[in-house]
Amino acid sequence: MTVWLDTLLQGIMLGGLYALFAAGLSLIFGIMRLVNLAHGDLIVLAAFVVLVVTSALGLDPFLAALLSAPILFAFGYALQYLLLNRTLGRDILPPLLVTFGLSIIVQNGLLEAFSADSRRIGAGALETQSLPLGGGLAVGVMPLLTLASAVLAILALNFLFYRTSIGRAFRATSDDPETAQLMGIDNRRIFALAMGVAMTVVTVAALYLGMRANFDPTIGPARLIYAFEAVIIGGLGSLWGTLAGGIIIGLAQAIGARIDPEWQILAGHVAFLVVLVLKPRGLFPRAVD
C-alpha cells in the first residue's frame, strides 16, 4: 500500500517537471498556432545559460535562474521578432521547417561551445533533502519544489492571460489576428512578447532539469516529446490542461517503472496514446478553436 502511495506521489511530482517543459510550448501554440520544434533544445540552451551564470558568478542556482530569466526573455523576444514572425502565415510548413532547423543549430552550437560532456547544476544539500510524511512515506524537497513551481508558473500565466491588458491582447490576437490589428495591436510585438514569456517559463523548466539530473546538448528532442504529449493530453491552448497532462505522463511513468523499470518511458507514451484515442481533442480543450 505504502509502495503504491509512494509511486503516485512520485509520479505527480515528476509530472510537475513535464508540465514546466510543456507550459511554454502550450503558451506559444495557444497564442500564435506556432509549433515550436526547437522547444526542447531551447530548454537545454536555457539550462546552459543558468549553468554558466551559476559557475561564472558563483551564485546559488535559484538566484542564477532569476538573473538568466531576463536574458532569455530578451532572447525569446528577438528570436520571435527577427526570425519566427517571418515564418507565420497561412501555410503551417515554414514554422515547422524553421524551428526544426533551429533545433539542429542550437544542438550543434551547444556541442561546439560546451562539448558533449554531461553537466549538472549543483544545488548542494537541496538535492538529497526530503520531508517525512509519516507511515514510511517521504517526498524529496526538490521534486516538491518542481511541482510547486509548475503550479505557480501556471497560476502566473493564467493571471497574465485573464487579468492583464497584455493577456487580453494575447487572447484577442489568438482569436483573430486580422481584427486584432484593427484594434491597433501590433501582432509582431505581441508574438515576440509571448515568446519572451515562454522563454521565461523555459528558464524555470531548465533550472529544475539541470538540478535534478545530468544534461548534455543532445537531450532536447526527448524533452520536446514529453512537452508535446502533455500539451495534447491537456487539450490545445489550455494551461491547466497542460499541468494535468504533465501529471498524467508523470503518473504513468512512475506506475510503469514500479511494475518494471524498463516500462517507465513506454508507459508515459502509452498513456498519451490512450488519451488520444479516447479524447482526441485532449481532456480540457478550449471551447473556441
Partner: peptide
C-alpha cells in the same frame, strides 16, 4: 473576439 467578454472586447479597443 469570442474568447473575450463584452467588456474585454471594448477594452481591446483602447490599444490603438
Amino acid at each position: 473576439f469570442p474568447s473575450l467578454t463584452v467588456e474585454e472586447n471594448l477594452l481591446i479597443g483602447t490599444y490603438g
